[in-house]
């Protein structure tokens, strides 16, 4: 009976106000230690539905309800992943993909930051750079694939450049906006302090635009993976995308799904890295500090 009351209270506390939480903790202090594990279970509730989905998926495959030729079962995918890692296929292709994404993203970072600072810090730069970039960003970058293949062939160049092209825009747009939206009152203040233009850029404009730059970087990382998927599925001889296209020819849905899984994990990891950077670089924001604590 104790147990059931505590359960109800726990559920209520999660959904409702702090008063209920305080009731819950009082209930806990009265009762047995078994309830703490129950509370910990509550934290894992978020993972319950994905796990359930995987279980249903496995069951559907095992019972023959879904053809394993069309959809590999989770267990099969795990086994395939293990063997792909064991024979080095996955690791070598992953290495190639990472290199391409890294190279493309690095180019985008340099070009995007340079252009954004040039157009953000000077009127001439704005007139020269902003208009063409605003026009070009409306073009879907993927539509350039045929053109890039004609121009650069089917080697590494078009793939890296495609990633670079796609990732440049979010970096440019966000940093440019960040530079332009610095509080004019702060700039006025630095003038009364007699700061030089260079000191103002260093102390006010760049740190003030950093949060926007990091938002741009986060978008750019996402776009990089997207561009990479397309680039590697068209005329590639290596990479995760190529591995998946190869598997298509042999109806190996398990390999395709391993590829999807890898893309998913890569996206998640890179997002975590940028979040970590945000927490490190923007410690001055009360929100960021709260998150790291």
């Amino acid at each position: 009976m104790h147990y059931r009351r505590a359960l109800n209270v726990e559920i209520g506390a999660r959904n409702m106000s702090e008063t209920l939480i305080s009731i819950a903790s009082r209930g806990r202090s009265q009762g047995a230690s078994g309830r703490i594990t129950l509370r910990e279970l509550g934290r894992f509730r978020r993972y319950l539905s994905p796990l359930l989905l995987v279980a249903v998926w496995q069951a559907a495959c095992a019972s023959g309800f879904v053809s394993t030729r069309l959809v590999a079962s989770p267990w099969q995918i795990a086994q395939t992943a293990a063997s792909l890692i064991a024979d080095g296929t996955l690791t070598s292709n992953l290495g190639v993909s990472l290199l391409r994404a890294g190279a493309g993203f690095s180019i985008a970072a340099v070009v995007g930051v340079t252009l954004a600072l040039f157009s953000g810090l000077s009127r001439v730069g704005e007139d020269l750079v902003d208009a063409p970039l605003q026009i070009m960003r409306t073009l879907p970058a993927l539509a350039l694939v045929p053109l890039f293949i004609l121009w650069f062939g089917i080697g590494e160049t078009p793939k890296v450049l495609l990633v670079a092209l796609g990732a440049t825009f979010p970096i440019y747009l966000n940093l440019h906006k960040g530079v332009r939206s610095i509080d004019p009152k702060l700039l006025e203040m630095t003038r009364t302090l007699g700061l030089s233009r260079l000191d103002t850029i260093r102390n006010v404009i760049l740190p003030g635009a950093l949060p926007d730059l990091l938002i741009g970087v986060r978008y750019a990382v996402g776009v990089s993976w997207l561009m990479l998927v397309v680039a590697e599925q068209v005329n590639a001889e290596s990479g995760i995308g190529h591995m998946m296209m190869d598997a298509e020819d042999f109806l190996r849905t398990d390999i395709i799904m391993v590829g999807l899984l890898v893309y998913g994990v890569l996206g998640l990891l890179s997002d975590q890295i940028v979040r970590f950077l945000e927490a490190k670089l923007l410690v001055w924001r009360p929100l960021a500090r709260g998150a790291t604590r």
Binding site: K185, L186, E188, M189, N203, P207, G208, L210, L282, W284
Partner: peptide
Amino acid sequence: VVFQEHRLLPWK
């Protein structure tokens, strides 16, 4: 000058 708003740089 001291303004109505403190105008401190939040990142310093």
